[in-house]
Write a protein that binds this DNA or RNA. Sequence first.
DNA 1: AACGGTTAGCAAACCGGTTTAGCGGAAGGT
DNA 2: ACCTTCCGCTAAACCGGTTTGCTAACCGTT
Lengths: 358, 358
Amino acid sequence: MVQQRNRRTRIADVAREAGVSKTAVSFAFNSPERLSSDTASRIREVASSLGYRPHPVARMLTQRQTRTLGVLTPQALSVVFANPFFSTFSQGVALAAEEAAYSLLFVSPVLGSLELAVDRATVDGLVAVGLSEEHPEVEQVRQADLPIVMVDSSPFPEHSSVDVDDEKGARAAAEHLVGLGHRDFLVVGAEPPTPGSRVSFDGIVGRRLAGYRAALAAAGIDLPDECVVVGPATVEGGTECFARAWEDGLRPTAVLAMSDAMAIGVLAAAHRLGLRVPEDLSVVGFDDIDVARLVNPPLTTVHQPVRRKGEEACRLLLAAIERHDEPRPEHRRLDTRLIVRGSSGRAPQPRQEVAAEE
Amino acid sequence: MVQQRNRRTRIADVAREAGVSKTAVSFAFNSPERLSSDTASRIREVASSLGYRPHPVARMLTQRQTRTLGVLTPQALSVVFANPFFSTFSQGVALAAEEAAYSLLFVSPVLGSLELAVDRATVDGLVAVGLSEEHPEVEQVRQADLPIVMVDSSPFPEHSSVDVDDEKGARAAAEHLVGLGHRDFLVVGAEPPTPGSRVSFDGIVGRRLAGYRAALAAAGIDLPDECVVVGPATVEGGTECFARAWEDGLRPTAVLAMSDAMAIGVLAAAHRLGLRVPEDLSVVGFDDIDVARLVNPPLTTVHQPVRRKGEEACRLLLAAIERHDEPRPEHRRLDTRLIVRGSSGRAPQPRQEVAAEE
DNA sequence: AACGGTTAGCAAACCGGTTTAGCGGAAGGT
DNA sequence: ACCTTCCGCTAAACCGGTTTGCTAACCGTT
C-alpha cells in the first residue's frame, strides 16, 4: 500500500535528492544564471522527477506579493452573480487582469462581515464596486492600506475611482418619457443590502433618483414617495416591485427602472398582468446589458460602458500597485447615453376620469 | 515628513508594545482561554490601537489551508464571463462556498498556461469546469494532488464529478423537432478553445452531438458534416455560425444549438435575414439560462439545473477537503428536461421542388 | 608564490504568523 | 514543609520558500 497522503515534496526534498542546498534549488528556478548550467539542469530534472512544485503560499510570503486582485462586493456573491451587470463588469476586470497575468479573487462578506473578508483576502489590491457610505465597514476596508479603486461608490478623493454620471443618465431617461407624454411614473430601485431603517438614498440609487426627480420637476411633475419602490437588484426583484405597486393601486404609464435586470423583471410582471408594452406601459432601464436588446420588446435603456468600467478600474488598480510609493489617485467619469428601443412609446390616452377600476 | 510607506504592523510590534511574547498575542486572538482575561483584552487593545491585522498569507502558510476554493476554466475569464451559463453556475458555487465561509478564486490560463495558473493558485481545492481530454494540461492539473471536482468534463473515476446526461437531453431536443416534421437540420456547437487540427468532439459537444445524431438516425435522417458548424460559445458566436451557414447555401428549417447563448445568437441572425421564428425556422437551445424565457420569441430549450450543478460540485469539493484522508469520489448525473416555448413550431410546408433560390 | 577577480554554491537569516514543549510561581492537598 | 497540580506565559521550532553575505576553489597575472 502506498503512503497515506504522500506529503507534498518540499524544496528541501529536492535539495537532498540532488545533493545540493535549498539555495541552489531556488536558484535553479529563479536565477539559473547563478548556477553552472549543468547543475541547474540536473536540479530541474530531479525536481520534476519528484513532482516538485514550489508552494505558492510560501512564495507569496517571501515575495510580499500575491499577483492576485480582489473584486469587492458588499453583497453575497450568490446574489451578485445573478446580476448580469456584474458579469459584464467582471469581463472587463478580467480582461485587464489577465493581460497583466493577475488572478482574480472575489471578496464578499464572510459570515456577514465584509471586514473579516477583507482581512482574509490575499490580494495586492481591491476593486470595490457599489460600496457606499451606508456600509459601516467602508472605513475599515479603506484602512486596510491596500491599494483600492472605487467603482460606483461614494467618492473618496484619496482613492482612484471610476463611475458614470448617473444623474445625467437618469435625467435623459426621464426626459425621454416626459417627451412621450407620460405623467404617471413609477421608479423601481435597488434596495440597500442592509435592510434596516428608512432607505437612505446615497449611492447610485440616490444619484439616479435625483436625476429622475430633476427631469420630472422641470416638467412640473411631482413624484410622491410611494411611487418609488425598491427591491433586490434582480429580474425577480423587478417583478416583485411592479406587482406590489400594482396591488397597492398604483397605475403608472411609465416605469423608470434603475437597472436593466429590474426593468426586465417589470416587463415580465406587466406581461403577466396583461399589459402591453409599450402601448399600455413604457419601461426604461439602466445599464444596457447584453440581453437588453434581446428581450421582448427590446429594452429602451441608458447605456453605460460596463465592460470598460471594469477594465479601467482594473488598470487604475494595477497602476496603483506598480507605483507603490506615493499614490496619485485618478477619478474617471465615463459617458452614458440613452438608447431608444421598443419598450417605450407614447403615453396612452388618458382614460375617462372614471374611478380606478377595482 | 511621514514615513515613506509605514510598514505593516507585525505581530512582533504588538508583542513589544504590550510587553508580552508573540505567542501571547497569537493566543489573544486564537485561543484567548489560554490567557488571563485581562491580559488578553489588554493585548487586543494594543493591537487595535496599532491597527494590527494578522497577515493572511502568513496565516495560510502555518495553518496549511487557504479557505479558498478555485474555479478552474480552460478559457480566459474575459471569455467565460460572457457566457450566462457560467454566471449561473458561479451562483451555485458561491452559494455553497459562502455557506461554508470559503472565498472564491477564479483560475484561468496565465500567459496561456493553465498549468502555471494552477501552480500559482492558493486554494484548498478546485472545481474544474469543461475540462476535456483535448486539453493536454488536464493531466498536470490532476496531479497537483489538490482535491478536485470535475464538472462537464471528461470523467476520471478518481475524482468526484457532476454532469448531466447530455446525450439524452440532446436526443429529446432533436426528437421534439423531428416530431414537428423537420428534416433539414443545422447543428450549432461550441468550438474547442484550442483552434488546432480537426475538431475533436470529445467533450459535452461530442456527447450532445451524439444525442442529436441518434434521434435523427432513428427517424432516418442523415446529418451531413457540413450541417454541423462551430463557433465561440457566445451570442455573437451563434450569430456568426448561422450567418455563415446561410451564406454557404444551407437552408435548414430547424437549428439545434448546443447552448442558449448560441441559440439566442441564431435568433438574432435569423431576424436579420428576415426569417420568422418559429414559422420559417425553429430554434432549440440547451441549458435554459435565465434569459431564455425572456428573449423574443421565448426559447425552446433543454433545461439543465445549472445553479444546482455549481452547488453540488462545490459541496462535493468541500466534502473532499474535509475528509482529507482517503477520497471517496462520487459521480452525480443531474436530470435534464425539454422545455417547449415559442421558438419551435411545425416545419414549414416543403416548397415546390424548385432549385434552391440563389 | 602571491595576488586580485570570478565563479559556484552554501549557511543562515528572513517573510509573519502558529504551535509545541516547558518553566516559574501560586494554589491546593496531606 | 513538601509534593503535586494548575495557571499564565514564553522560547524556540516550524510552515516552505527567497535572499543576503560569505567562502572555497579556480583562473590568469605579474
